[in-house]
Design a protein around this nucleic acid. Sequence first.
DNA 1: AATGAATGAGTTTTCATTCAT
DNA 2: GATGAATGAAAACTCATTCAT
Lengths: 200, 200, 200, 200
Amino acid sequence: MRHETVDLIFDAAIEVFAESGFDQAKMDDIAKAAGVAKGTIYYHFKSKEELFVGLMNEGVQKLIDRARRNMELHASPTDQLLGLVENQIRFYVQNGKLAKLLLSEAFGTKTRQLQFRIKIGEYLQLIEKVIDEGNRIGEFRVRHVPEAASAIFGAASVVVLQKLYSMDELDPARIERDIPPMIETVRHMVMCGMKDSSWR
Amino acid sequence: MRHETVDLIFDAAIEVFAESGFDQAKMDDIAKAAGVAKGTIYYHFKSKEELFVGLMNEGVQKLIDRARRNMELHASPTDQLLGLVENQIRFYVQNGKLAKLLLSEAFGTKTRQLQFRIKIGEYLQLIEKVIDEGNRIGEFRVRHVPEAASAIFGAASVVVLQKLYSMDELDPARIERDIPPMIETVRHMVMCGMKDSSWR
Amino acid sequence: MRHETVDLIFDAAIEVFAESGFDQAKMDDIAKAAGVAKGTIYYHFKSKEELFVGLMNEGVQKLIDRARRNMELHASPTDQLLGLVENQIRFYVQNGKLAKLLLSEAFGTKTRQLQFRIKIGEYLQLIEKVIDEGNRIGEFRVRHVPEAASAIFGAASVVVLQKLYSMDELDPARIERDIPPMIETVRHMVMCGMKDSSWR
Amino acid sequence: MRHETVDLIFDAAIEVFAESGFDQAKMDDIAKAAGVAKGTIYYHFKSKEELFVGLMNEGVQKLIDRARRNMELHASPTDQLLGLVENQIRFYVQNGKLAKLLLSEAFGTKTRQLQFRIKIGEYLQLIEKVIDEGNRIGEFRVRHVPEAASAIFGAASVVVLQKLYSMDELDPARIERDIPPMIETVRHMVMCGMKDSSWR
DNA sequence: AATGAATGAGTTTTCATTCAT
DNA sequence: GATGAATGAAAACTCATTCAT
């Protein structure tokens, strides 16, 4: 089991980073939120950057793990992809702060962003694998798999974030009600896009 | 006509903000890039934040203007939407730095992010308008228009950014070659999603 | 003429650095002593290290300049060397704090120490030049010139510092009285050492 | 016999202190070098300062012990002084790190420096004793004994350190070769200085 | 005796902003 | 309109020291 203090710091850090973004997040605030001294963070993490990267990797890993479990429930690539979309949208709603960091910190040339993008790449490969399998067995006819995976990831991400940040205040009940339309919209778009039926 | 110095500052600021993000961007660097003294920026803009907001609004406005001009070339909602997708992708490729800021600075609760999201909202409304019209004349059967607009915007955005940042270094020729697959992928996905043809 | 503020900072810095040594010296104290804001120091100097190096170079340069002027007063290498010794000892008494830094910061592998040693090397070369000339015209018969220069420099340095720091408190009158014995002692030792008269 | 752990700490501390100086030396590094936990150092020493003082005293004591043994080999003050010079130079070459600390930490007003100077004073008294005896039996005619002792100490110290730190990297063979010139230079200078032969 | 996780005061450095010229 | 020297609040990071085990 991981050290207890590290958990405290992780939990506090995800809150603070997501609230303010990497640059605006203050180590003082993370320490305060974790209920430890600032030095304690530096005892466990070499730098703010290292803390951030560790945190993000863990966050994306959770998304990946959930996605993997979800995929095992379904046999066909079609069902698997539908599951992936639903899973990502529900995960984002439940982890809105992480979701925001996912988009806002994924692109850039800083070390932390490079490392972070690698982890996101893992998730994208999961999507690509499903599409490849669908292509193989003839369920899909996707010509550009990486592009398709990015598009799916981007569509699901922005749909949720735009929803979360367009509401004046987070109203759990309303969000809950808005989940099915989001899922339906992205699923619909994605699934049609997988088929070859030329659209003209 | 706008003051010449302001133009110099704007041009420099877009470069620097996009290179480093809002927080890492230094007024010193912007001044140096613009070839003016730091005080001069403050003569024209009240604060870093105001400069940023002005800049982003102008950037998104360019995207909107291009989109509007593009829409006038086509009559049917279908063609207009296809045009919007192509336009956004080409605009992103040409303005990669702005594109990155678009995603990384769009979500959050800071004043500048709220203002920025309003401007992005204008662009999303453009998409929604096309979808609405498509629904009206029966070309589309979209149930959740705002969600669909976000999904389109997100898909097109992430496809390009993932491409730009997955390459070791920016190779204009390679990017140029990759544009058609990106356009085709998003268009295909989007257009099918607009049709009602239930996908099961 | 050098910028006035830089002079203020230099004057304050020499005091503070000499009082506490490089590591113990606080930029806060230097700023306070100079009567400027801490940021002002960083506007003019990139770092504590750069400030220190600049300062030390200036300090040693003063010693060198005085030594050069002194040398011009005398024609023979013997008189020049006697003058150098007296000059160094008097300079050290007048600039005790710099003298302390000279010994305590001269050795080590940090960048600042390397740069500093280069400057001290200039002074040592001055001594070597006199010895070389003395050797040339037959006034001296020194076999190992660099070693001799170091020895002279070390003898004069430590004599003064040991005196300054062995007194409970700095009593200008007492120090003044002790200068001639120090000069005589080192001169005597040095001059005999220059002659070949084998000492057994 | 001293506790074994204390020896480990001492050996590690001399390395680390000499490498970095008192301020830059980290207790963490000493602990790591000693192969003990940081707390263990504090179990045996009240503070970093106490550790340093103990260490320096031991170091200088070694120099003193060697000097004492060396003096017993010779009968005349002249030979004893020659021996002292050779001994100090050889000791410095063998203990370059201690030598550096000797000069860089000897002067200052901190408690540790005061204590350290007392110990160095012991060594200087040894030199003075020899000179006094030389004066008594007529071998020397030194007018200012403390000044002479300081000068000898300073000359021998700086000659070695200047040599050690002027070499790009420590080459044991080259240093070995350079020892005789250093000894000869300082001895020559010192011995002549001890005689009364007025030098003009 | 020994450990090493935890601490928090202290320090360097950064940088948006101001303002006298 | 434009300048750039000066500011000082803020923030990351360090490290000697403590103490429960």
